Computed example of a mutant assay.
Amino acid sequence: MPDMPPLLAELVATLPLPTLAIDHSERIVALNPLAQDLLGKGVVGQHFITVLRQPTLVDAVEQCLADRMPRKAPFLSSTGSGDITYEVALQKIAGTGTVILSFQDVTHLAQAGQMRRDFVANVSHELRTPLTSLMGFIETLRGPARDDAAARERFLGIMTGEAERMNRLVGDLLSLSRVEAQERVRPTAKVDLRNVLHTTLRNLTPLADDNGVVLHHDRGDLPLMIRGDSDQLLQVFTNLIENAIKYGGSGQSVEVTATTSDRDPALRAPAVRIVVRDNGAGIDPLHLPRLTERFYRADSHRSRALGGTGLGLAIVKHILNRHRGRMKITSELGKGAEFCVILPLDTDTA
């Protein structure tokens, strides 16, 4: 095994990141316990190519040994729980032929970058469809349908619908941005959830009537006091009850119930549970874990036809996170769906 200065070996051992040293003979001469966990045991004395293997990092090591310039290179690893992305910093020690490699876990940055790319792609896709439709109708109205009054009225109606769809999407994007910005700021105002539910049900009664849906509710007789943002809570229950009305089906009913517990198992504290249940076609359990993801739709065609943007439940999730709440979704095909919102009670007010 190549000789390694004791001081440098001790320094490598104390560094907080996975770190190893490669000398002028291109062999690994020292590594700390974190690097040993990453690369395995028995690597000291081996040629670095047989240990690191990944071409981009191997090239960076060879160049650093040759020209002594610091570099950075990626290194990918995998565990039982998933892939890990490292950024490796390479630095040659002045006056020696030794290169130090430090591995920093940047998985969260890689995931955030991928989320941004996916988000931009989804928004572009959602906007492209109505924009393409609008451009096509405008071209038709300027050309073949210029003097066709009936076609003009029909096309203008469709164009209005597409414009409203884009407006809803932009509105939900702005709402999601605001909610995410406030997510770590816990609300302090005292709110009675019974009043929030009363306002929500009153606002949605005309929609329920238009869809032939009957709203049943049981909000109890006692105040349901929590610390919250009444506007955001109104947004939560408007979203859930409106979805239940639209997806529950004509001739069905939607039940909204509120119950309290001195120690709710989900929060391990006094809490209120608001359950919104419809009696529609239900949701395949396969989709349930992903329903709160941005732009995820269990039935994309039906969701778009009903005016959904794919962001509603994502907004609900972030609002509930701000209120230290939870949401549980249960459903079976043919047996409707149930959305249960769990929020901590304000015991001081009680």
Rank of each mutant, 00 (worst) to 15 (best):
M1K: 14
P2S: 14
P2A: 10
D3G: 15
A9R: 13
E10D: 14
E10N: 09
P16I: 04
L20R: 06
H24F: 13
H24L: 15
S25P: 09
R27T: 15
I28V: 07
N32C: 11
L34A: 15
K41N: 09
F48H: 03
L57Y: 03
D59Q: 11
E62N: 02
S78K: 09
S78V: 11
D83K: 09
I84C: 07
E87V: 05
A89P: 01
L90H: 06
A94C: 08
A94F: 07
G97F: 12
V99L: 01
I100F: 06
S102F: 10
Q104K: 10
H108A: 15
Q114W: 02
Q114A: 02
N122E: 08
L127H: 14
R128S: 09
P130V: 00
S133N: 06
M135T: 12
I138A: 12
A149N: 08
R152F: 06
R152Y: 04
E162S: 10
E162F: 14
R165L: 04
M166N: 08
R168D: 04
L169D: 04
G171H: 02
L173I: 10
S175Q: 14
R178C: 10
V179M: 00
V185D: 13
P187N: 01
T188L: 01
T188I: 07
D192Q: 00
L201C: 08
R202T: 10
P206R: 02
D209L: 01
D210C: 01
D210R: 07
L215E: 00
L233Q: 15
V236Q: 11
L240F: 11
I241D: 06
E242H: 08
I245A: 00
Q252I: 04
E255D: 15
T259I: 01
T260H: 01
S261R: 03
P265V: 02
A269V: 05
V272G: 02
V276G: 12
G280N: 02
G282K: 08
D284K: 14
P285V: 11
L286R: 14
L286I: 13
R290P: 00
F295P: 12
F295W: 11
G310I: 00
A314N: 11
A314D: 13
K317F: 03
R324T: 09
G325D: 00
E332W: 12
G336W: 02
E338A: 15
C340A: 15
L345Q: 12
A350M: 14
